[in-house]
Design a protein around this nucleic acid. Sequence first.
DNA 1: CGTGTAAGGAATTCTGACACG
DNA 2: CGTGTAAGGAATTCTGACACG
Lengths: 109, 109
Amino acid sequence: MEEDKHSLKERKVITIGIVSELTGLTVRQIRYYEERKLIFPERSNQGSRKFSFSDVETLMEIANKIEEGVQTHEIRREMAKKKKGVTEKEVRNRMLKGQIRAQFGDPKM
Amino acid sequence: MEEDKHSLKERKVITIGIVSELTGLTVRQIRYYEERKLIFPERSNQGSRKFSFSDVETLMEIANKIEEGVQTHEIRREMAKKKKGVTEKEVRNRMLKGQIRAQFGDPKM
DNA sequence: CGTGTAAGGAATTCTGACACG
DNA sequence: CGTGTAAGGAATTCTGACACG
């Protein structure tokens, strides 16, 4: 569940131009949101940004927040909270698996 | 199930350079396999090819076949058969859903 | 048949900066 | 603060073709 680095959704394979088409944002805006630490594209050999479908989703949420007048540092905080929530959920999940394993053997999850 | 045009796997968003990295094939090879009708990338506004994750998978299968010495027109035929098989499977699936619906109401699949 | 390569052009992407505000 | 833009350079992508075989 935590090793999603290789799921289709998380793989960084989309160039900024296509992300721009997909989100309706300008490349300038996308680069700026990276500068503000809202998204974290990988870099290609020659330094080109590569985004995932997940990044595209995040960008659309960002676009909504921006339209609502929320500032980037606020969005940054909100996202940090949300991410933390997921992490805690994963921790609980892991603990639960451990208990189940202890009781019934490997649950193969 | 048949409206997969918009699933992550089918969306054409990857440029040829990244497909090259992902598959280990040269851009020349990828373009050639398109010429031989083995893959069907979409085109960006200015004519750049855009591939899906599904295309990447197909290309890896093609790479294997080529290594085995299978010629492109043979691969083309094999793929036509496989595609037809999937279609028939989908037809059966649709018919089955119809029957279930008639018996028990909408199965919400 | 399948793939490499040089050719020439068009479009992309990158960074740092100035502008407005 | 968020975004547009012109600047200059580097890397990408495209097509049609010649080469080898």
